[in-house]
Design a protein around this nucleic acid. Sequence first.
DNA 1: TAGTGGTCTAGACCACGCC
DNA 2: GCGTGGTCTAGACCACTAG
Lengths: 235, 235
Amino acid sequence: MEEKRYRQVQNFLKLQIQKGYYVVGDYLPSENELCSSFSITRTTARKALDELTKEGFIERQHGKGSIVRERRQSLGLLNVKGFSEAVGGDVKTIFLQKPQMNFWNPEIHFTVSESEIKEACIHFSRLRCVGEIPAMIEYNWLSGKILEGLIDLEFIDGSFFKTLSQHYRIEITGSEQELRAENANKNIAVLLKIPLGSPILHISLKFHTSKNNFYIYSELYCNTENYPIGNSYHI
Amino acid sequence: MEEKRYRQVQNFLKLQIQKGYYVVGDYLPSENELCSSFSITRTTARKALDELTKEGFIERQHGKGSIVRERRQSLGLLNVKGFSEAVGGDVKTIFLQKPQMNFWNPEIHFTVSESEIKEACIHFSRLRCVGEIPAMIEYNWLSGKILEGLIDLEFIDGSFFKTLSQHYRIEITGSEQELRAENANKNIAVLLKIPLGSPILHISLKFHTSKNNFYIYSELYCNTENYPIGNSYHI
DNA sequence: TAGTGGTCTAGACCACGCC
DNA sequence: GCGTGGTCTAGACCACTAG
């Protein structure tokens, strides 16, 4: 079956964005320009742009055009307050473990899929600080099968998701998460510089992606005392 | 300015659902039926139905129709695992405090708006249990100005949101939330039947609604030991 | 005023669900 | 086979932004 016309246009534009031909703040071609270059009607052009809007790649501006925006990377994930606010460079990310081959860890809360567990696993972990204060520890696991070369890669702008998009054309399409309040064990307490047994927020995550059977598993441990976790949602 | 045609149709259908003329599982009129009854084209009828889909009132089924669905009431709110799964009546909700006039409580984490703080406040609180195990305490505050009679009302299906929709035509349009891991104080510990100082998940919520300047403020205290908080999100 | 996105009409053909 | 929603064409007028 032929690919739908609007999806062809949608994917073409998405690729341009992912490849960096359009960067944040740029305007995409207008609806009329798309009509003539793709030989489609405005209905179809609009549908393509509306889909990109839903996906968070662009924003429509009446009377101006369709502007490329910073893609919301959380998708239901919660943000540490202070991480989003502190844009001035107050946020520091320290690698506890650079990406390397490893075993699938039993610490992963969600069930790793059958097809993944047979493959090699890449693991990396980071400590996130606001100013000098450690706020969150982040452990990540993912299948190493399709991510050749990730181990030697510098993350773009320090963002793993941005690297996934621009190097591998993989987008986050959803997530499952589970939250528990726990007492900090010794390891966590030392890293977050808090007393043993302090209440911490433990978040287990399974990210779904645009690539079939490729998921990202994360375990987060947050000190919410100074930097609570927040998010908002609006229709 | 004239109301947009698609929004007229959208609001008409929404009202029918809110009033209970269509209940969960019912099919709305087909696109073609809407076309003739409202003298519009399919484009406009589809736009109305697409908006209702986005709002979560209906679900579109290719080849069948548009079916009324249980409106997602969480909207970014997290669900206690077990609350959603345990449909069999295993979930119990106990009123600690039936709705009554009260003062705006300093315990509310988000800032209460100027216009609200001058008005009377309704407060109610509930204990939510899975089986016999208390899992969550819920404190709620809202402006009493526009909710005449709420105090004497039975909640429809035990749901405050459903009552809001069907009695007052007010829908939840979004929420802000903030999460912290804390140690249970004496009050919380007694109610949740856990040792003093146990780690609990404290969630502060501010719900936005379709009514201007009307918000609902909640403070939740969850024992995540047996019933962790979970949610998922997909594009 | 020119160009953009937002709404809307009046058609057409196709894919899906069901009888 | 028939009715449903999904895609698409070829137009039109309007509202908004900016030079």
